[in-house]
Design a binder for these strands. Structure first.
Lengths: 127, 127
DNA sequence: CTGTATCCGTGTGGATACTG
DNA sequence: CAGTATCCACACGGATACAG
């Protein structure tokens, strides 16, 4: 069975088309390494199930790396692989386009807000 | 009710996050103006319903323009607005990333194929 | 040719509980 | 802390028919 794409972007969407994948990738692009619970704080809307499945798929497609520390309590760190880092320019543009779009919406009087307190939610790299 | 984004890319996804939207935008980016039936040939997998709804949403968000010709038989042309053209770099990168990814999959022996016969399906700008 | 309306199946994704 | 396993609802999206 031959899989046929009619336009190349369809292949891209199969990899990053998931509901939360660009969000996950953008956070990784910002922070480098992120632990599971940190993701849950960075992405309040996501459920445990979705988070895991999206991460697994990204891992399967070779975009992210999953590093397990054998310790108690458990610790798992996710990061972009070198292949995943190839998405960096796209991720950055998606983010900056969003920033400008939010400003546009605000100028039009819509009640939208961008939270900037990444640091409050924050990443602690406690080893 | 205040809409809150936790990261800017979320706003981008609300605009181009639809299942077919990046595909539609990429085609517009390639061809300039596209008629409804041409979309159906360019995107064989899409249903009439989906095509219309995705186009409407893109129009609502100001990315594409819908030009209706009052004639028989009816004719409607879609194109990127100037705001939509601001997505051009992103669309191009999404496409070229996909091309490279398809090559990678092929190198790994997966049965994937990119159709290049845009011209067979082709756009006729019959006035 | 372009678009709307309806019906309806499916799979995405949420809530919850549980394991290592 | 990290992850799996169910259950299940609802919205997404397909098929079909019809209208301008």
């Amino acid at each position: 069975m031959q899989k046929v794409y009619n336009i190349a972007v369809e292949a891209t969407l199969e990899v990053i088309g998931g509901k939360w994948k660009p969000v996950i990738l953008c956070h990784l692009n910002h922070h480098g390494k992120i632990r599971t619970n940190e993701f849950r704080r960075l992405i309040p809307g996501i459920s445990q199930k979705m988070l895991t499945s999206q991460l697994r798929e990204l891992e399967q497609d070779g975009l992210i790396d999953r590093k397990v520390f054998n310790q108690v309590p458990p610790k798992v760190e996710y990061s972009l692989t070198s292949y995943g880092q190839g998405m960096e320019p796209i991720l950055s543009m998606l983010c900056s386009w969003g920033e400008k779009h939010i400003e546009l919406l605000q100028d039009k009087g819509e009640a939208v807000l961008l939270r900037k307190n990444d640091e409050d939610i924050s990443i602690q790299h406690t080893s």
